[in-house]
């Protein structure tokens, strides 16, 4: 049962405007019907691959597992036409192990911090976690917002915490996870997006979900956030980046998400500095599709090295 909408949240909802849920659903259904063939498909698959944040977020992560993840990120497949991924995404304690392998390469190190995935520890320890990850070499920090505070209407607290984490990040890029599955309504997702974007720097991200709950990134909540990014950009000129995460497993899904980006935000967002996929299983699927296109024969899964099975 949700608490009664508080006055502060009510005001924010009024400020950012409502979301037409039926309209969003109608619109995203259309994305899945686009015919993407040959050249555009190859372009889309390569682009999606270059946007992957290759992720392992398991209790069982070891330095060895992170090392193999890094090698996979640097060279997803032996075919030279297959690009590198954008980043590896690990827990803070694994950042120094990842750094040994990818520092100095084009692959960045992202680390979830702030008591991922719940965010339910004191702010002080969350900030300490962020600083530790950054000093170990993290280029990007994925933080979770305080959903409990958001739903209780303590919006200022939520925003202040984002600002505090932003300061702790220093030069590192910040990704703010809204955990859309716990925000209950599209209006709330839009409001939370604006709450984060109002304080973010250009090039920082908002991210759909942790991938640790049953509710994952869907085209619907993704679209609500894209619309928010567009409205924010048109109003302020600040370009915020986007990262869906969780549940994106097939190449076809990835292409649908890219269609949504292109048709909502345009070509400027079709780059891995402005758009990312948080995924692990997706990488092999993309490589498999690219190899299928290159060789003309559908590939068997054992042709590709296993990556982690995090998300």
């Amino acid at each position: 049962m949700l608490p009664k909408t508080s006055p502060a949240l009510r005001r924010l909802l009024d400020d950012v405007g409502p979301v037409d849920e039926a309209g969003i659903q109608e619109r995203v259904t259309k994305y899945t019907t686009r015919s993407i063939k040959h050249g555009s498909k190859l372009f889309g698959l390569r682009l999606a691959l270059s946007m992957v944040d290759l992720t392992t977020l398991e209790g069982g992560d070891t330095p060895g597992k992170v090392a193999s993840l890094c090698r996979k990120a640097l060279r997803p497949h032996h075919a030279p036409s297959i690009p590198q991924v954008a980043a590896v995404c690990v827990y803070p304690s694994m950042v120094k192990h990842a750094a040994k392998h990818v520092k100095g390469t084009a692959v960045r190190i992202a680390s979830v911090a702030t008591a991922f995935p719940s965010g339910q520890t004191p702010l002080k320890s969350r900030l300490a976690e962020v600083r530790a990850a950054v000093s170990d070499g993290a280029d990007e920090i994925d933080m979770v917002i305080n959903r409990g505070a958001f739903l209780a209407g303590e919006l200022q607290l939520v925003q202040d915490e984002i600002v505090a984490v932003l300061e702790a990040c220093g030069d590192a890029t910040l990704k703010v996870i809204l955990e859309t599955g716990e925000l209950a309504t599209c209006d709330n997702i839009r409001a939370a997006s604006f709450l984060a974007m109002q304080v973010l720097r250009p090039g920082d991200f908002i991210k759909t979900s942790t991938g640790k709950t049953s509710a994952n990134a869907t085209l619907g909540n993704h679209q609500v956030m894209l619309d928010a990014i567009r409205d924010h950009f048109l109003a302020t000129g600040t370009a915020i980046a986007m990262k869906p995460a969780g549940g994106i497993r097939t190449a076809k899904q990835a292409l649908h998400f890219l269609v949504a980006v292109k048709e909502t935000l345009g070509d400027a967002w079709l780059t891995n500095t402005r758009y990312r996929f948080g995924a692990s299983a997706l990488l092999n699927e993309l490589v498999r599709q690219l190899e299928t296109q290159r060789t003309g024969a559908y590939q068997a899964p054992w042709t590709f090295t296993e990556d982690s099975t995090g998300y």
């Binding site: 024969a297 559908y298 042709t303």
Partner: peptide
Amino acid sequence: ATFATHQH
């Protein structure tokens, strides 16, 4: 053709 070439 797909039966013949599908590697799986």
